[in-house]
Amino acid sequence: MNSKQLRLLSAKWVIIPIGIAYIGLAWLALQRGNSLLIGIVLVLLSMIPFVLRFERRERKARELMLIAVMAAVASISRIPFAALLPNFTPVTFVVIISGVVFGAEAGWMVGAAGALVSNMFLGQGPWTPWQMFAWGMAGYTAGLFAHRSTWRQRRVPLAILGVIWGFLHGWIMNLTLALDQWVQTHSWKAVAAKYALSLPFELTHAAANLFFIIVFGPSWIRLLERYRRKYGTLERLEYPDDAAYKPVEGGVSREASTVK
């Protein structure tokens, strides 16, 4: 079997049966009181629709570039804050603002790619898929929430979203252990106690999001809007007789007319 044949086994047709088998396995394990597998399997599977959707359309160079830059900036944005409080970083802020300006799909991609790439430098671990999920969803929900509504792009609504994600992010990261707690004891009190233990971290995270959105939200949105226009107006030479040279109008992410 060489790599060419490997490619023939198109990814989709390999992933789907494996996914189903894994769900079965995880379910069986859950029946026996072992909840470790189910979470990670579901998180990994949840990424597939996003990734496939991203593949389906032709992507322009500038569109990929924009996402790559946002992901790279998100993953290094914690460096200047290393000297401040732990967990007080603008990563979630960068992801949320990306989602708001470039749309839900791009927001998910920025979050997930940011998590993946930053872990390539800090060290991959079982937390990688969880982080990809949490940041990806932060970007996605931000896009759904405020991409098309200027009213919701204002400070207060975004700040509320930021605070919610400050807590949700930590909860998602601890989901494996919380789920395990519930399977062990079937008591919500134990789960709540488990979450209460990590509350200080979530509080700092939420405070960081609140701070960044209140102080820098509007100016960052303006900045990114500027670049969305700059990247979106892909003006190329206009020949009077040639339709293929018409400049493509509109934004990068606003369901840009698909050429080809």
Partner: peptide, 13 residues
Amino acid sequence: RLSPKAALVAMMA
């Protein structure tokens, strides 16, 4: 293999 475009984005980042 799974997602050429997403992999390209990751490679660029």
